[in-house]
Structure formats: C-alpha cells, structure tokens
C-alpha cells in the first residue's frame, strides 16, 4: 500500500517525532508514504483569522497539486492540517463563491481543482484500511500494564466528525487496546489543550493543558497518547512551566504512533522518543499504578 502524504510544517519542526514514528510504524505495516511534492503551509487556524480567502487559496494549492499528481487521497497527520484541508473541501462543495475565488487563484499557477481528493487521518487509515487485525499481528511487545489516556484533542473530530464521533471518539481507544495497553476511560478526550494560547496568553492556555494532565493522572494514567503536534508540544514542552505553576504532575505525553512502534518492537530512538522533554519510561511494576 502506498499513500500520498502531506506532512505539514509542524512535523518538520517541533513535531518531528510524530513523523519519525508514523513513517516507521507504517513502513512496518507495509505502507509507504509518498510525500506531496512542494507542499505549502495549510494556513492553519492563524491564517483564517487574518484573511479567509487567502487561507482557502493557500490550502487549495496542496489539494490541487495532489489532484494533478493523480492522488485520490491525501494523508494529513497533523490535526490542524487535517481540519483546514477538510474545511476547504467542504467550503468549495457548499459555497460556489469560494470555489470561484479558489479556481481563479489556482488558474494563476496553471492549476485547477475538481474536488476529488479525500483528506484522511492516520487513525482513519489504520482502523478502516489496514485494520486492527493486521496491527495485532505485528504486536511483539504488548503494552501490558501500561495505562494510556487517549487524547484526541479538537480538530480531528470537530466540526466534521468524518471518521469518528465528535463527542465520544473511539478509534484511538480501539487501537491502543489492540496494542495491549489498558485504555483509561476519561471524559476529556476531546477537550481543548489550549492551542496557541499557551504561548500567547499562558494563564488561560496553560491552564487548559494542566487540566488534561491532572485529570489523566487522577485516573491513574501512566501516559497520554496524542495525535497532534501542537497538543504534544503543549503537554510536553510546557510541562515544566505547568508544574511550576500548579505543582508536580509526573505524566509524559507521546504520540499514539510512538506507542505503536514500541509494541511492534521498534527502537525508541527510531520512534523519536528521545525528543520528548518529559521522558517516557515503561512502568516497571505495572501493578503498582497510581490510585
């Protein structure tokens, strides 16, 4: 299997470990990713605050290039990219004026977009294309005794909820259970991590991240599993700052793909685990968990 792939800026910067681990586990599952040639920034949430039309044009270039390359699907691992590309897809389907503007702009680059590219998330591919059975077969070191709080964040399930429920998503739960981990039931699966507010308005943003860490800890989780480079950054890089404000919460955050890699027996370094600021260690005595 081979999937066209849109890495996005974060996976080349702060979220490098996400790309490293995702490529490694997909390769292990016999799936290769083909990077979209000369992709550009999706626009994320910030661009939409400045100029909606330009944000749409920015995103459309990627989809148009994907279509021209003959791709019918595009894998977007970053939550913001996933949402923004999906949002453009919805907008041009629903609002003819947006479609016209986008086409006009694309024409400047001799591009054209018919709307045929389906934007997909790795979780969607893993569950609905590769399948849990194929994943289970690859598990050589089941994550037995590891209590994981699955954290989906916002933008992969909202507002479009294309492959999972907007309030109670379960795809990552199923995946983690397949890896042998103990999935912690907790109600903050889709609560906001603070996004960029952690940097701009720390007293508001960091508090949201703190709430997630604290509740996961209260539920006895050893680790949070995330799908988004920004969530990971907030929960991992700002961890010291959060502890500084609210006291110790010894709980690391890793990408779900890193946990998959560990279960597949891949080397932690290959999965980018050495890039975590809060080091993740497998609990040696799984039975001695937090209350």
């Amino acid at each position: 299997m081979k999937y066209p792939y849109f890495p996005g800026c974060s996976l080349r910067g702060l979220g490098r470990a996400y790309e490293e681990s995702l490529l490694a586990v997909l390769h292990h599952l016999g799936v290769e990713l083909q990077e979209l040639e000369d992709w550009n920034c999706c626009g994320a949430t910030a661009y939409m605050s400045v100029d909606e039309t330009q944000a749409a044009v920015l995103a459309s270039r990627n989809l148009a290039r994907a279509e021209r390359a003959g791709f019918s699907e595009l894998l977007a691992p970053c939550s913001a990219c996933y949402l923004v590309l999906n949002k453009l897809q919805h907008s041009i389907e629903q609002f003819p004026d947006i479609q016209q503007t986008v086409q006009r702009a694309l024409a400047q680059a001799n591009l054209n977009y018919r709307g045929s590219v389906r934007v997909r998330h790795p979780l969607d591919i893993l569950l609905h294309e590769i399948g849990l059975d194929a994943i289970r077969e690859r598990v050589v070191q089941p994550l037995r005794g590891l209590k994981v709080a699955p954290y989906y964040g916002c933008q992969i399930v909202r507002p479009y909820a294309t492959f999972d429920d907007a309030h109670q998503p379960t795809t990552m739960d199923q995946l983690l259970a397949t890896l042998g981990a103990e999935v912690v039931v907790w109600p903050l699966k889709t609560k906001c991590c603070g996004g960029t507010l952690t940097g701009t308005v720390p007293e508001a943003g960091l508090r949201l991240s703190y709430i997630l860490l604290k509740e996961a800890q209260r539920r006895g989780a050893h680790v949070l599993a995330t799908v988004c480079p920004l969530c990971h950054f907030n929960l991992d890089a700002y961890h010291a700052e959060i502890e500084h404000r609210w006291g110790p919460i010894p709980i690391p955050t890793v990408y779900f793909s890193q946990l998959m890699g560990l279960a597949f027996g891949l080397a932690p370094r290959q999965l980018g685990l050495h890039r975590n600021l809060v080091p993740f260690r497998f609990p040696s005595e799984p039975t001695v968990a937090c209350p």
Partner: peptide, 8 residues
C-alpha cells in the same frame, strides 16, 4: 454543556 465525572 455536559455532564461529566471530571473532578477539579
């Protein structure tokens, strides 16, 4: 907005 067992 929601009913939850998330305790602060």
């Amino acid at each position: 907005a929601e009913v939850t067992d998330w305790a602060m």
